[in-house]
């Protein structure tokens, strides 16, 4: 039996992918947990940017909201919101950004706006875009972190809030986006990455104890499995201790 929760394995696996010295655009929730877990373990020099204006934030506690005082007082610098979006993001200075969504499709398009076919009469009204379209467009790469639920992994999103990889190999370059887009999707079941041939998200790793069929059952499109399917290393007791310590402080 696994001794970790769904959010814990997602956070640990995502944190391992960060290299020291990277610049990360961090949102509230799991992304903030991931970035600070990495900063507290193997990547002490991560440069964290929060959209409210904090550059080089080093929070001791995880913030509840994106503009918490903890971020401003620990930051190297605090700049205005237009500077964050126009200079830092659109200007191409961020290595990795994190996104989550209510829906993701086979090409990594993300929906955080409405569920249902009619924007003006939605089945569910979600919070909306926030900084997501710019993160998806401009970070050098994007890691998506979300729970693997059948209603969330859909063939086509109802509303494209943030652009993924596109059906064509040159979709992003035709739009003028310099970033690679969502090339890693980390769920509580495994890791998906785009097939280099046609950009379709493909299962490349499963977490310990997970069966491929579990992942396919919770994906609405016929999920491809990479021939070199890997099994992720289980979270170590050190990783879980660091993660739980961070959570307990907050």
């Amino acid at each position: 039996m696994p001794t970790w929760a769904a959010d814990e394995i997602m956070s640990v696996v995502a944190a391992r992918l960060l290299r020291d010295g990277m610049s990360c655009f961090v949102g509230i929730g799991i992304p903030s947990t991931v970035a600070n877990l990495a900063r507290n373990t193997h990547a002490p020099n991560l440069f964290l940017i929060y959209e409210a204006g904090a550059l080089g934030a080093k929070p001791y506690r995880l913030p509840l909201s994106i503009g918490d005082g903890e971020l401003a007082v620990t930051a190297d610098s605090v700049v205005s919101v237009p500077e964050i979006f126009n200079y830092w993001l659109q200007g191409g200075h961020i290595d990795v950004g994190y996104l989550s969504a209510a829906q993701i499709d086979r090409f990594g398009n993300l929906n955080t706006t409405v569920i249902g076919p009619d924007y003006h009469d939605p089945k569910v009204r979600l919070p909306g875009a926030g900084g997501a379209p710019e993160i998806a467009a401009h970070c050098h790469e994007v890691t998506v972190i979300m729970r693997h639920a059948r209603r969330a992994f859909v063939p086509r999103v109802d509303f494209v809030t943030s652009v993924g990889l596109g059906p064509e190999p040159d979709t992003r370059s035709r739009l003028g986006f310099r970033g690679a887009g969502p090339i890693k999707v980390i769920t509580d079941l495994g890791i998906l990455r785009p097939d280099p041939q046609d950009n379709e998200l493909t299962l490349v790793a499963i977490h310990p104890g997970v069966e491929v069929r579990d992942v396919q059952d919770r994906t609405q499109w016929p999920l491809r499995v990479a021939p070199s399917l890997e099994v992720t290393n289980a979270p170590t007791s050190e990783e879980l201790a660091a993660l739980r310590d961070l959570k307990n402080r907050s």
């Binding site: 979006f85 126009n86 659109q90 706006t113 924007y119 875009a129 379209p133 710019e134 467009a137 401009h138 509303f159 494209v160 809030t161 943030s162 652009v163 596109g166 979709t171 739009l175 003028g176 986006f177």
Partner: peptide, 13 residues
């Protein structure tokens, strides 16, 4: 001018 609305549904509506 900006780029973030390119290719997404927000830019269409």
């Amino acid at each position: 001018v900006m780029k973030g609305y390119l290719g997404n549904s927000l830019g269409e509506i």
